[in-house]
Deep mutational scan, measured.
Amino acid sequence: SKDTIRINGIDIDVKDLHEEWKRLVEEALKRGDEELAIELLERALKE
Rank of each mutant, 00 (worst) to 15 (best):
S1D: 13
S1E: 14
S1R: 08
S1L: 14
S1M: 11
K2R: 10
K2I: 13
K2V: 14
K2M: 14
D3N: 08
D3C: 05
D3L: 03
D3E: 11
D3S: 04
D3G: 05
T4L: 06
T4N: 05
T4S: 08
T4V: 13
I5Y: 03
I5K: 01
I5G: 01
I5F: 06
I5D: 02
I5C: 03
R6G: 04
R6S: 14
R6Q: 12
R6Y: 08
R6A: 08
R6W: 08
I7N: 02
I7L: 09
I7M: 03
I7D: 02
I7Y: 04
N8W: 02
N8D: 08
N8T: 03
G9M: 03
G9R: 02
G9P: 01
I10K: 10
D11G: 03
D11Y: 07
D11K: 04
D11L: 09
D11P: 06
I12A: 02
I12Q: 03
I12N: 02
I12R: 06
D13W: 10
D13K: 05
D13M: 07
D13L: 07
V14C: 01
V14N: 02
V14K: 02
V14L: 10
K15T: 15
K15V: 06
K15N: 09
K15G: 13
D16R: 07
D16Y: 14
D16G: 15
D16V: 07
L17W: 06
L17T: 02
L17A: 02
L17N: 01
L17E: 00
L17D: 01
L17I: 12
L17Y: 04
H18A: 15
H18W: 06
H18F: 07
H18M: 08
E19Q: 11
E19M: 09
E19G: 08
E19C: 04
E19P: 15
E19R: 09
E20D: 13
W21P: 03
W21M: 09
W21H: 06
W21E: 05
W21Y: 11
W21F: 09
K22Q: 07
K22P: 01
K22V: 15
R23S: 09
R23G: 08
R23M: 12
R23Y: 11
R23N: 10
R23W: 09
L24W: 06
L24D: 04
V25C: 02
V25N: 00
V25Y: 03
V25A: 03
E26D: 09
E26K: 15
E26M: 15
E26T: 13
E27V: 04
E27N: 08
E27D: 13
A28P: 00
A28Y: 05
L29G: 00
L29I: 11
L29M: 09
L29N: 01
L29P: 00
L29D: 00
L29V: 09
L29H: 02
K30S: 15
K30W: 11
K30F: 13
K30L: 13
R31N: 13
R31D: 11
R31V: 11
R31M: 15
R31I: 12
G32W: 03
G32L: 04
G32S: 02
G32I: 01
D33W: 07
D33Q: 09
D33H: 08
D33G: 03
E34K: 09
E34A: 10
E34Q: 13
E35R: 15
E35I: 12
E35Y: 09
E35A: 14
L36M: 11
L36F: 09
L36D: 04
A37N: 00
A37G: 03
A37E: 00
A37P: 00
I38K: 13
I38F: 14
I38P: 00
E39M: 14
E39T: 11
L40N: 00
L40A: 02
L41T: 04
L41C: 02
L41N: 00
E42M: 09
E42K: 10
E42Y: 07
E42H: 10
E42N: 13
L45C: 08
L45M: 12
L45I: 11
K46A: 14
K46I: 11
K46C: 08
E47H: 07
